[in-house]
Design a binder for these strands. Structure first.
Length: 255
DNA sequence: TGGGTGACGACGC
DNA sequence: AGCGTCGCCACCC
């Protein structure tokens, strides 16, 4: 019969190569803390370890959250008595401040960490396709794998995985539901009506006579396509024919 | 270890 | 527009 502590050890360290973490869990002294914090989705639980913010979930049922945490991380989590620097930073970031929050991606694989790091580069008001992340990571055909990695994001909102959408600008999946994802993006300024008017007709890029072309989800460019000097494009070749170069911010095609 | 799974994308109706 | 199909890849058992 397998020692249950050994099973926990394996589960919790499956994706981790960190010796200090494995030691902490196996010796049974690892206890993380959690509290609730205000966010764009209302109250959420935030949990953290000494290494950083480890989880964000919708607040509600303490017991359910603690059970989920134990199941995923093989680690107890208990209510915090007070904030520390990590939870304070997370609180500020969830409030919209531009602060750095240490993140504890203890059970994420190297690939998943790279996906989350790239997603963290997408600023509010913009979005990027799953395929864009795959391409940026150097594995352009790993689009499904990118979706799977985002689906395991332990810290939604903090790592803004909701800003990764499908190539056709439909929202795609989300841990808190597609409707919630769409509302979050709309709140950040993403205009889905404008995007739909573009993609419905098969356009994939927005060009500007100033000399560049973008993904429709680059900032608010989708809301300006009817202005003079802007044009809709179906292919990168079409953009090139007009003498347009890829936007350096959204990088619409491979370099 | 190889086959199953899934926040995808392209394509064909 | 919205399906089904197929290829793709990281990860799991």
């Amino acid at each position: 019969m397998t020692d249950p502590r050994l099973r926990d050890y394996r589960d919790a360290t499956r994706r981790s190569t960190s010796p200090d973490f494995t030691t902490k869990i196996f010796s049974g002294i690892g206890v993380d803390r959690y509290t609730s914090a205000a966010s764009a989705l209302g109250d959420v639980y935030i949990a953290w370890s000494a290494r950083g913010l480890s989880a964000v979930r919708l607040a509600g049922d303490d017991n359910a959250f603690e059970a989920w945490y134990a199941e995923r991380f093989a680690c107890r989590v208990v209510p915090a008595v007070e904030d520390d620097s990590i939870s304070s930073a997370a609180r500020a970031k969830l409030h919209g401040e531009d602060v750095e929050v240490p993140i504890d991606l203890r059970d994420c694989s190297p690939f998943e960490r790279r996906v989350l790091a790239k997603a963290a580069e997408i600023s509010a008001g913009s979005a990027r396709p799953y395929a864009w992340l795959a391409r940026e990571l150097g594995t352009p055909t790993a689009t499904r794998a990118v979706g799977n990695a985002l689906g395991r994001n332990p810290v939604p909102l903090l790592v803004p995985c909701h800003r990764v959408i499908r190539t056709n600008c439909s929202v795609g999946g989300y841990v808190f539901g597609a409707a919630t994802k769409r509302e979050l993006l709309a709140q950040e300024g993403v205009d889905f009506d404008a995007l739909e008017r573009i993609t419905r007709r098969g356009f994939r890029y927005v060009g500007c006579d100033a000399g560049w072309f973008c993904l429709p989800t680059c900032g608010d460019v989708a809301t300006r396509v009817d202005a003079p000097g802007y044009r809709l494009l179906r292919t990168a070749a079409e953009a090139h024919a007009h003498g347009l170069v890829p936007c350096r911010l959204c990088r619409p095609i491979a370099a």
